[in-house]
Design a protein around this nucleic acid. Structure first.
Lengths: 143, 143
DNA sequence: TATAAATTGAAATTGAATATCAAAAGCATG
DNA sequence: CATGCTTTTGATATTCAATTTCAATTTATA
């Protein structure tokens, strides 16, 4: 699984004529070891703790590459930080976001995906990606 | 319609103990006269052209009030600018965004809304709002 | 190994958004 | 309508994420 993702990135790098560097390997390893929805800053700190030499800009640049390669997806929630989540082939999930405690629950719904395709087709759109977030209060915060 | 919205804002202001000011009236007028998805900067420039005295900060502050009052909704697309769209009571639409030319098409789908409610219920969520954006290429850009 | 090209990282820069705070304006009261 | 209190405004400074710059380093290839 992780190996497969590394291969995806290597293939992407090769096809783009990118060079293989120690920094990108490290950042990829650490990104793959994280949970969902990590912000660039969070990942940067994680990287920095084991590899103090790696700079800010490199983490930003590298995450953009991961997104281009199809390994990661940028998500904008409402805290002013860009976050990245893992892309799992053939799977797309959306988010329930609790405005009380910032809990994020992922869900997947095939019917919604289908409807999206229909809507896009109706407007002549070729879908590349989508995102959906539902905001509200989770069971805990409702009390 | 516009009058109704002004009333909504006035009622909101009254309930919050906010004062009625020339600036807020002007910004509301101009906001109501705009098309969908205006960025704060765009609105600021519009306001400034007829009322050079009105400041940056006031436009930001006032748009936040409109959102609180339920007249406007913040949307984050992918250009680093916060945009505001008009909220129409009882109606919610989502967006098809063309990554080629930045065309934005609105759509509404009741079935999706229903599914969202079911999903939320399944997780014990109380929905407050949601947003959905589908990214891809519009009919023109596909060619 | 030498060369050319890509990559890195520190620092500077950008740009959106917010905070600060003195001056101005709104509002209630006498 | 003058007074006094509070909110609001706007110029400016500040914050903070993200990007750009560019000299030094590293990688790939011959």
């Amino acid at each position: 699984m992780i190996l497969k993702k590394k291969k995806i990135f290597n293939d992407f790098a090769a096809s783009k004529g990118l060079r293989s560097t120690r920094q990108r390997d490290i950042i990829l390893d650490i990104f793959l070891s994280t949970h969902q929805h990590i912000s660039v800053e969070e990942l940067y700190l994680k990287v920095k703790s084991s590899n103090p030499g790696i700079g800010h800009a490199t983490v930003y640049r590298t995450l953009k590459l991961f997104a281009e390669a199809g390994l990661a997806r940028e998500i904008l929630l409402h805290d002013g930080q860009t976050r990245y989540e893992h892309v799992v082939a053939g799977e797309h999930h959306d988010h329930l976001v609790c405005t009380g405690c910032n809990l994020i629950i992922e869900f997947e719904d095939e019917t919604i995906e289908k409807l999206q395709n229909e809507i896009a087709a109706r407007h002549g759109f070729l879908i590349n990606s989508h995102k959906m977030e539902i905001y509200g209060l989770c069971a805990n915060c409702r009390r």
